[in-house]
Amino acid sequence: MQKAPERKKVSDQDTELINAINSGRSSLFYDLVKEYEEKLYNFGLRMCRETRDAEDMVQETFLNVYRYLSDFRHESKFKTWLYRIAASVCIKKRRKSKFAPQREISLEDFIPENIENIPDSLPYWASEPLEKLLNDELSDNIRKAILTLPEKYRIVLVLRDIEGFSTEETAQILNLKPASVKVRLHRARLFLKEKLNDYFTA
């Protein structure tokens, strides 16, 4: 039988630490936790409505990482593998929860019916320097707006625009085709753009 070709190994900033943990120095696992706990917690806050759920997600993710770290084959960056676990914990939690409306967002809903209605100048929130706009209140409002996105769009937007993963990496994390990532991201951004426009013009 022909052997499957071996995938190229990916080396990153965590490789040395992971190799040390996997070769028996399990006390170093906490270093890995410290490195990612805050990032994962903030990811959780953008994916879960309740702070408690975000906390549970972080703990469950690290438990799974601890359990399966010896199976990590370095075929992706560790961070990509970690978020694959975190995303799957989020999705499982969502399925268990009683509110799980998974509605579709249609691109057609955002296509302006009458082009003439689009303003002829940039609104201030798109022309002011970013630093002038960003504050805790706005961040809180963006989070609330993100939470109103159906989950399959929200997770793509969070991974791409907040966590900074590439289209390819996001596709790997969510087991999707890159083309689907692009479609969902575009719709999610359009949805959020309208929410932000409402917020800034209220």
Partner: peptide
């Protein structure tokens, strides 16, 4: 630009 700003604000 409003779409770009949306992504930048998220970031």
């Amino acid at each position: 630009e409003t779409l770009r700003r949306t992504a930048d604000l998220c970031r």
